[in-house]
């Protein structure tokens, strides 16, 4: 049985490492990580993850939500956006795409 592949998009590398470690501890595969929205969009095709964990606040010009939208245009990968109270409220108001899972 192949492991589910999860991509982590997080600009704080240590935090990203922590998440990766935890996920691998739970038995998932984390083949690639990105620290900016642009990088995530670039590497999503090579990496082909089953799920993307996306932080909202990122380096670079675009935030997590915009990056998730861009990814959704090209492929059908669920994106989980990390909890962030204010943002959550903000994006729920904006009728965000169904596959954007704001947990």
């Amino acid at each position: 049985m192949t492991k589910e592949r999860i991509m982590i998009v997080e600009d704080e590398k240590i935090v990203a490492l922590d998440i990766k470690d935890s996920l691998e501890h739970f038995g998932y595969s984390v083949p690639c990580m990105a620290s900016s929205g642009e990088e995530a969009i670039r590497s999503v095709n090579e990496c082909k993850p089953d799920l993307i964990l996306m932080d909202i606040v990122l380096k670079g010009k675009i935030d997590g939500i915009d990056a998730a939208r861009a990814i959704h245009k090209n492929c059908d990968i669920p994106v989980s956006i990390s909890p962030h109270t204010q943002m959550k409220k903000h994006y729920k108001e904006q009728n965000s795409p169904n596959r954007l899972d704001i947990s």
């Binding site: 704080e12 240590i14 935090v15 490492l17 922590d18 998440i19 470690d21």
Partner: peptide, 8 residues
């Protein structure tokens, strides 16, 4: 980060 470092 400190929290993550401690867990790692």
């Amino acid at each position: 980060i400190i929290s993550s470092l401690l867990r790692l």
